[in-house]
Design a protein around this nucleic acid. Sequence first.
RNA 1: CGGGGUGUAGCUCAGCCUGGUAGAGCGCUGCCUUCGGGAGGCAGAGGUCGGAGGUUCGAAUCCUCUCACCCCGACCA
Length: 569
Amino acid sequence: MKTSQLLTATLREAPADAEIVSHQLMLRAGMIRQLAAGIYTWLPLGLRVLRKVEAIVRDEMNRAGGQEIQMSAIQPAELWQESGRWEQYGPELLRIADRHEREFCFGPTHEEIITDLVRREIRSYKQLPINLYQIQTKFRDEIRPRFGIMRAREFLMKDAYSFHLNDESLQETYEQMHATYSKIFTRLGLKFRAVIADSGNIGGSKSHEFHVLADSGEDQIVFSENSDYAANLEKAEAIIPQESRPEPSQTMKTVDTPGQHSIDEISSFFNISAKQCLKTLIVKSEDDGLIALVLRGDHELNTIKAEKLAGVLSPLTFADNAEIKSSIGCEVGSIGPVGLSIPLYIDHSAGNLSDFICGANTDAKHLTGVNWERDVPLPASVDIRNVCEGDMAADGSGKLNFARGVEVGHIFQLGTKYSASMKASCLDEQGKAVTLTMGCYGLGVSRVVASAIEQNHDDKGITWPAAIAPFQLALIPINMHKSQRLREAVMSFYEELLTAGIDVILDDRRERPGVMFADMELIGIPHRFVFSEKGLDAGEIEYKARTDTDNQNIALDTASQFITEKLIQ
RNA sequence: CGGGGUGUAGCUCAGCCUGGUAGAGCGCUGCCUUCGGGAGGCAGAGGUCGGAGGUUCGAAUCCUCUCACCCCGACCA
């Protein structure tokens, strides 16, 4: 490819509404343009990258025994009604009607469609297991699309669905997909981590997320310093403290604490660590009452864990001030478990405190020297907090480290959630009808592109991993238009590279060298050769990798071999 | 959807407070010079100031409505 034939649309300045690096660089490099909120046009350069990601994903899926299909982006409402998600899914589902007023949606995911297909086609256990996938445009009408292609409403996703006679078979395919995803992200050249995840509203039991590590990532992931254990913060288990609770050494006293509400205020008022304070949060219960959640002062509530507690209203809803005042009799800043008449859930760490400080359930008063069992009954404690950096990992292997990640893949063991409601079954060896067990495996292809940039950039632009760079090699001739000899040398070298199958871009624009250097660096071509008259006299060309600091001279007659070897590495 | 913000040339922005007929830099076109890190000069093209309504002799500027986009929250590949 020659730059004169490519829609090079590089910008010196990033449009003001691009917030994160990948969005800015994708705009500046001329990879994408915005059409509407969360909706983008892919320009030639961006599409080349997208296609390369897609090719790797497809190749690995095929190797793992996946079969590619293509389902319709538009889906009939009937199937969604059958699974019950037409009502459940909410406004994120883009619903449309045709000219006959028949209802459809633009597919945000394809469980219903694949389940419908499989229940029609699969008759016998002999056809199982089966793993079908597609790479296709999805639409989710997100409340707030942002960060360019990273969280778009329309995006490209690889979604695979497997069907099984039993859980053992599902487990096998699930593990195979786990390994396949690891291969894919390794081939893409990305630093990533597989973590234990919450399965969210897709349903099912077991799931893992794959995160590309990047400081700008929206997810907090935690991992053990000594083992493979890794989890999304929302799912990471906090283990029960191993040390036993110290014996009480203080007597309980009521202290006036005018104007002291937050844990920060209380801990500095008493000049004591937040770890010795209790935080009591009041949420709504399913039967319209209130429930108290008690945490150690320095800990954060984990809403996902809390929502799963018996009786707690999901989604988690905090009680408002008026409800608390009328039910408990004090303001938010003075609540504590002592004498509280509503149901309590105590976090493990909070339950392990002694001589702690908490609200007295009377305005402007707190209790000090409080002890479980002696002053207040201690129900069985539960895990409702976010783990902290330095906590012991749930597998007991070592301390937890934190990192930020971008979720690019998510695999689920769905079980029979869809196959049961949509009656997808087949006959087993005994000729008995068995409801199929199902797994699903998503991978955000377009998001991979953005996250790759988040992980690989410098002050000059993108530094693509070789596997997904739009071109492998840039050829930059200096003052080519002034030298017939140079032009001939460059063109013949260019042809030679093309013949050798090298993905090369020749910058044949009549630009000054600085412009060409800056553009090729911005779009992140991993390797570069510079041709000049001077070099030609010496029989040399100049080589520099995108991330090198210095040039090196290469004999022209070995340059083709040189770059071939570089590309194999 | 709740809260906040922005809409003026392809991009970044000034002008708005205090109304008087639209600007800069970059980019774009042509010519000249320059030619190894986003050059310089000259000449140009390009805007119904997001839209509608209103106030006024006069509106980018003041008022009302509306649309779009962005940011913070809950959601997700």
